[in-house]
Design a binder for these strands. Sequence first.
DNA 1: TTGTATGCGTTATCAT
DNA 2: ATGATAACGCATACAA
Lengths: 354, 354
Amino acid sequence: MSAKRVTSQDVAIAAGVSRTTVSMVLNNVPGIQISEETRQRVFDVARELGYVPEAAAQALVSRRSQSIGFVMARQVHHVITDAFLNSLIAGSIQTVHDHNLRLIVEMIDPEHQQEAYLRLARARRIDGMILAGPRFDDQGLKVIEEEGFPVVIIGHIDQSNLCSVDVDNCAAAREAVAHLIQLGHKRIACVTNASPIYMAPAMRLRGYRQALETAGLAFDQNLVRFGDYDLESGYIQMKSLLDDGLSFTAVFVSSDVVALGAKAAIYQRGLRIPQDIALVGFDDVPMARYMEPPLTTIRVPAVQMGSAACRLLIDLITKGDVAKRKITLETELIVRESCGAKRVRTTNQSIPNQ
Amino acid sequence: MSAKRVTSQDVAIAAGVSRTTVSMVLNNVPGIQISEETRQRVFDVARELGYVPEAAAQALVSRRSQSIGFVMARQVHHVITDAFLNSLIAGSIQTVHDHNLRLIVEMIDPEHQQEAYLRLARARRIDGMILAGPRFDDQGLKVIEEEGFPVVIIGHIDQSNLCSVDVDNCAAAREAVAHLIQLGHKRIACVTNASPIYMAPAMRLRGYRQALETAGLAFDQNLVRFGDYDLESGYIQMKSLLDDGLSFTAVFVSSDVVALGAKAAIYQRGLRIPQDIALVGFDDVPMARYMEPPLTTIRVPAVQMGSAACRLLIDLITKGDVAKRKITLETELIVRESCGAKRVRTTNQSIPNQ
DNA sequence: TTGTATGCGTTATCAT
DNA sequence: ATGATAACGCATACAA
C-alpha cells in the first residue's frame, strides 16, 4: 500500500541500462539484438526488485487493456440458478488465461440497462466482448456492431453478421421430441427454458413443433408453457399443466434446470417418471445424470462454447477479422432413464463412468 | 475500431473551454465554481460527441483501476459444478455495480498457481481482491497481507488478521447433525464437501464430531469420507460407504451438491430416503428444495456473503481500514423431507412459497 | 547494441 | 471562473 512502486526506471538504474533496454528485454521484442549478458542482468534485477509493469500505463500506450468482457443479460436470480452459465464462464476464463488475458464479468438487467455495456467498450476497459444469451431486440448491440467493436455472441441473432457460437437448438429439440415420439408418445407437452423473446427458447420451441408436425401429430398451444430459466418456473409451469387437467404422457422441457423444477411438480402430484410421464431435458448440466431418475437430455458443450467464443474473439481482436464468423457446435441426445429406458439397479453399475 | 477516439481535448475545443474545465465539470469537483451556462454546455457537448473518459488514463493518474478481483481457488470442473460460487459471484457483481466498479473473475488452480493473483495486484489491475475458499497453506496470501494490499476472504483462516466474511461452519454442522440425533439416529455417516485442507470442510467435519460427542455417540473414522466439491465425488464416496457394508441410518453431507451425488448412489442401491437412510445437506443451494425428496439442509446466505465481502473490501480500499474485520453471517437449519418429516402430497401445497 | 525524446488521455497544481 | 503545465509509467521511433 505504502511502499512506493517499482518502475521500469528503477530496474533500468539498478541494472545500469536505459528504460528502453528494460522494456525491450522484458517484452522480448523480436528484431532486437541485445547481449545475452545484459539481457540476463535485466531479468535478474527485475525479478529481484519484484517489478511488474503497471497495467494502466501499458494499456494507455498500447491501446489494449488485455482484458475482455463477459456479459450475461440476466437478472441476479437467474445467474444464481443457471448452471449453464458456470460452464460458459469456466470455459471462457480458461481460454482467456491461456492468452494472458483477464475476464471482466458483467451482469446486465436485460430490461433496463441494455446499453450499459457500451460504457465498458467506450472506456476501452475491454478489448472485446462476449455476450451470452441476447434478446431479439437488443439495441446496444446494434450500436456496438456499427462501431466495429469486437463482439462474439453466444447464441444467435437473425439477420446479423455478428460473430457467434451456438448449437442448432432447433434440430436438437427436434431430436429430443422425436425420441419421445419414437417411444410411442402422442400427447407431448412442452415447457420452454425461457421467454421466446430470447432466441434459444424460441428455436427450441420451433424444434418441438417441427418434430410434432413431421410425425403428423397436432400442435396444441395449450400444451405449451414458458419457463423462466429457473427451477421455480419449471415447477410452476408443470404444476399449471397438471392443474389444467390436460392429457399428456410426456413433456419436453428445454432446460435441465427448469426440468428439475418440473420434476418436483410431477412427484408432488404423486405421478411417476417415466411410468406416468416421460421427461426429457436440454443442456445436460452436470446434475442431470444424478437426478431421480437420471435425465434423458440433449448435451450442449457449454465449456467448449465458452472456449470457442473466446478464441473467436481473440482472433477478431488481434487479426481484425476472422474467416468463419459463425461457429456451430454439435449436440447429442443422451438417453438415460427419464423416458422409460430400463432401470438397472445392480451394485456394480457406476453412474460416473456411464 | 477505426473512428478516432473522442478525448477530453475534443470536448474542450468543441465547447470552447479548456481541458481542465471539462475535467472539473464532468467529475463534478466540489469546491469549484463554474457558471451554470458553461457547465451545461460542457455536458451537452460531451454527450453529443459521445465522450467517455479512457479508463487507462484515469487509472494511471488516479492510481485506481476501479475494478476488483474475485478469485476462486478451484479447478475448472469445480467451478462448473459448484452452485455455491454462482451466488457468491452474483452477490459480488451486484454490489460492485452499485459502487460503479467492475469485477475481474479469476480461477486459480490451487495446486500450482498459488501466487498467480499476485500479478493482478502488482500490476494494479485491481484495487482489491476477494478470495473465495482459501487453503490453510496459501502462500501468496501471506505476501499480499504483508504488502497491505486490500483483501477480503470468503471463508476463514486461522491466526490471520485478514478481513473475512464467513458463517460458523462448525456450529451449523453441529446443528445439522444434532437434528439427526434428535430424530433418533445413532449411526451417522459423514461425507465432507471437500478435502479438509480447506477450512470450511474441516470445520464442518469438526461440527459433526462435536455433535456426536455431545450426544455421547462414538466417533467412527470409518464412517467419514471426503468429497471433492462435485456431484461425482458425492456419488463415489456414498457408494464406497455403502459398499463397505457399514451400518448407519443417516448421513450428513456437508454440501448440497455433493449430497445430490450421494443421493443417486443411495437410490441406485435400491435404498429409500428417508426410510432407509436419512440425508442432510449443507448450503441450501436453490435446487435443494426441488430434490427428491426435498433436502433438509443448512441455509448459507451465499448472495449476502458475496455482497458483504464486497462492501467490506470497498471500505478497506476507500477508508484504508475498517472497524469490524471479521463478519459472521447467520445460518439456519431448513427442515424439509429428507430426514423423515411427513410427506404431504396434496394438490394445493406449493413448494415455491414453502 | 544502447540511449533520448515524445506521446498516450487524464487529473491536479498552480497562476491568471 | 478559467487556462497553462506537470506528472502518471510505459513503449517506441529515431538518433547515436
